[in-house]
Design a protein around this nucleic acid. Structure first.
Lengths: 230, 230
DNA sequence: ACAAAAGTGTTAGGCCTACACCCATGA
DNA sequence: TCATGGGTGTAGGCCTAACACTTTTGT
């Protein structure tokens, strides 16, 4: 069927939602990309994304794409910018509402088309379709800004993690190095971490302490007008 | 003509750009609203906005709206969120890319339909059309976040201003009070202000010092990895 | 035995905050 | 003369940043 049923008095652009999916493997930030099987940009890599249905919001659309590729229904998804350059898609005028999602790698199952989906480290990103390189740059910048003020990093970590993993995460996102002792002190002083299990007495000193994010404490502190900063 | 010339295989939403225009009168933040002359929401107030043309970006559309209402071609305009609730417009599905603009009140001429456009203080906002109350809330929040890290406040002030005006601006946007001396010291230490004119010798001590924003110095500091904060 | 990871405290300097008085003007 | 607005400096506390050694384990 190539009939054109939906008619308007004025031209309407198509609207899509794209979803930049970030993960963390304990060392570096990863991005989930999908290799396009069709033109345009066949063979190039792109973010999961698709046309917004007429009865869903952009965010619902982004979550749908996320679930299709990762199986995840619940995740931190946030809109960050809408790209509307006139020629960003060669087929027709397409405006895309870009989102990023933060997921735990351990919870991601291979999606339907796992064959064509792959995680890439941020320094191994291949050539991207459309204006997706620009979208990625903006997503990373927004992530950097965001993590300075809200503890979104915890969305990327397993429920229980070590201080070193947490530090690696912050260093990977912000592209800086922190002094280990200062990072420990700062994080512990903030009061948003709980010790997951007191280190077993028999464990060696080499065994790292495990922590979990204390969401309740964070909410409480935020209420009091508290500001997270790095 | 009600002919429907533009046809698509799938339904397309309409896309609009809205522009929340902020001004500052030396004491408080003002927002420019337009009273709607047609249904829906006839008589209610709304932000300038309109349908995006097929050959312009959302930002160009927002700037066009800004110019129509204020005569300003150059201004700080920034996209901040895209609203896509399914029923936000009763006529058809409309996705709007919301922007805010920062303008100097002194440079604004009454627009074409000045009769129906008015500046409102943020505590006198009337009932708004569509989901514009939500849009306004989000715009104010974004402005608060933004002014903490970039000197966008200067877009709202005349070229030459007093320290008290600057402090009033920050206090109005952030809804807090600062200690006057601390504010002076902090601002002067930042090094992004220049004295506009050395206070004339004959002027009384009551005459306030005048400053201007030193954009060059700011760019230089930012380059060196400098962080503005409040 | 050597390299790599984890845990731990102190100090100095800078920044933030709180705070009070004087002068000039206009009402 | 009184209220208002503008200018100015300091001291204490807190946070930040810089810094080294020990233990343990795996190779």
């Amino acid at each position: 069927m190539s009939e054109q049923h939906y008619c308007y008095k004025y031209p309407h652009p198509a609207v899509t939602a794209d979803c930049v999916i970030f993960g963390f493997d304990g060392t570096g930030i990863k991005v989930l990309l999908i290799q396009r099987g069709i033109e345009p940009y066949k063979g190039k890599w792109a973010f999961p994304g698709g046309f917004m249905k007429i009865d869903e919001t952009a965010e619902e659309c982004a979550r749908r794409e996320l679930e299709e590729e990762t199986g995840l229904k619940e995740a931190c998804v946030e809109q960050f910018y809408t790209f509307s350059d006139v020629n960003r898609d060669p087929r027709e005028r397409v405006v895309t509402v870009a989102h990023y999602a933060l997921v735990r790698l351990s919870e991601v199952k291979g999606g339907d088309d796992a064959a064509s989906a792959r995680w890439f480290a941020h320094d191994e990103i291949p050539a991207l379709a459309f204006d997706h390189d620009r979208i990625l740059r903006m997503a990373m910048n927004r992530l950097k800004e965001r993590i300075c003020f809200e503890p979104i990093g915890f969305e990327l970590l397993p429920e229980v993690f070590t201080m070193t993993e947490l530090q690696n995460l912050y260093e990977a996102i912000l592209e800086v190095k922190f002094d280990r002792r200062n990072f420990y002190n700062k994080m512990l002083k903030l009061g948003i971490l709980a010790e997951a299990e007191p280190r077993p007495a028999n464990a060696s000193r080499r065994t790292p302490n495990k922590y979990r994010f204390n969401a309740g404490k964070y909410a409480e502190l935020k209420q009091k007008g508290f500001r997270l900063e790095f």
